[in-house]
Amino acid sequence: MSAPFPASDATLELDCRGLRCPVPIIRLGKRYTEVAVGELIAVVATDVAARVDIPAWCRMRGQEYVGEDVAADGVPVYRVRRLS
């Protein structure tokens, strides 16, 4: 579910508020190919496991974990760059 206004410079924002693991990672795995190589995806997730699992997903799938940010409502935003 992409928000109408993607966070900052991300091309695609995945709103995973309230979703439990591994659903945020499944969303990311299904949809990251919607952005072009080199572009950013922002995953907004309340699930605490996302903090470990999004960097681990990037490592396993050869994508780049850019870092963590915070949305206006205080929910963590994890940023990923598509590399392939």
Partner: peptide
């Protein structure tokens, strides 16, 4: 798993 930085689900 968290401290190791490996996938925690599955």
């Amino acid at each position: 798993l968290e401290a190791m930085g490996v996938l925690t689900h599955g």
